[in-house]
């Protein structure tokens, strides 16, 4: 029984790591632009396809590359290109709307997301694509709990990325500039902070992390389709809101919570199809009683 619980917990941790990585992108963009970047889930989807192609290209090369190198190559390839994609989307779709009503930007984000999704569908087709294994496939069993190398890789690498980001935002000059912009976007440019470059940077970092998440997700659940961005993206989005959107540590916490919800729901409820219901109900209840999420700070309106 205990072993089973720990096994579930491990699975939840693995899934939660991926959710947390994607949730970070939602929360970073919201923090700096107060924009719900509904396209982020689809950026993640594109990221996982990019990682797949990167890996396939490296695996098919003349020289037999070690798996670790292929993994790192695919990771860098995916992260770089998704970062570019994020910056491009911001430049083309969101920047023209920065002075427009907030609603316009949110709708644009929805539109961009659908565009990415349907564009992928139209070019690649709806059939699922399979991701080749990029790890040796070891697994460790200890007291009845099995942990695969993929699982370990996902949990550790995600944690490393998150710690890195937390340090970047909390303890560097760049991070200070980012936080300053999210605090007040009108005054900060007067202090010599290059706001546009900082916003681009936010999109780049958020998207790159989603790209990394795309690769890791593909390793754990090796079937990709154009709709995965919606499926996973919504969950990550809930994670960001549950944790308190705009709050980086909140997004991480929310990611792990949502991972647990997904893994443990079928344990307590008859069918796994109740997962969406449970997750969104949780979101709704939380929003009613604590609208700013678990770690978010409340806001006041001036009269």
């Amino acid at each position: 029984m205990l072993a089973l619980s720990i096994q579930y917990l491990l699975n939840a941790l693995q899934l939660g790591s991926v959710y947390a990585l994607i949730a970070l992108g939602y929360t970073m963009v919201y923090g700096i632009l107060t924009l719900i970047n509904f396209a982020h889930g689809d950026i993640f989807m594109v990221g996982s396809y990019l990682a797949l192609w990167g890996a396939l290209f490296l695996l098919g090369s003349q020289v037999k590359l070690p798996l670790a190198l292929v993994f790192i190559g695919a990771l860098l390839f995916s992260m770089t290109l998704t970062a570019l994609l994020g910056v491009l989307i911001e430049r083309l779709a969101y920047r023209p709307l920065r002075q427009a009503p907030r609603v316009s930007a949110v709708i644009t984000a929805l539109g961009v997301g659908l565009f990415l999704e349907n564009f992928t569908l139209a070019t690649i087709g709806p059939q699922p694509q399979h991701v080749p294994p990029l790890t040796p496939g070891y697994s460790f069993t200890f007291l009845g709990v099995t942990c695969s190398d993929v699982q370990l890789l996902i949990i550790v690498l995600s944690l490393m990325l998150m710690v890195l980001l937390d340090w970047l935002v909390g303890y560097t000059m760049t991070g200070m500039a980012l936080r300053a912009i999210s605090y007040n976007r009108t005054i900060v440019p007067l202090m010599g902070v290059p706001v546009n470059r900082m916003i681009s940077l936010t999109f780049a970092i958020g998207s790159a992390i989603a790209g990394a998440g795309g690769l890791l997700y593909g390793l754990a659940y090796p079937v990709l389709d154009p709709y995965m961005g919606v499926r996973i993206g919504w969950w990550a989005f809930i994670a960001a809101v549950v944790g308190g959107i705009g709050n980086i540590r909140g997004a991480m916490l929310g990611g792990y919570i949502l991972g647990a919800v997904e893994i443990f729901t079928p344990v307590f409820l008859p069918a796994s199809t109740y997962r969406d219901f449970v997750a969104f109900s949780l979101l709704l209840i939380l929003l009613i009683f604590r609208p700013t999420g678990l770690l978010g700070r409340p806001t006041f309106e001036r009269v």
Binding site: I36, W234, V241, I245, D276, F277, L283, L284, P291
Partner: peptide
């Protein structure tokens, strides 16, 4: 709640309805 948060509430509502119907 207003604005973004209400948008999320309505979104959650949509998802809950769909998920309930599926079940």
């Amino acid at each position: 709640t207003r604005g973004d948060y209400l948008a999320i509430v309505t979104l959650a509502f949509n998802m809950i309805v769909k998920s309930l119907l599926e079940n």
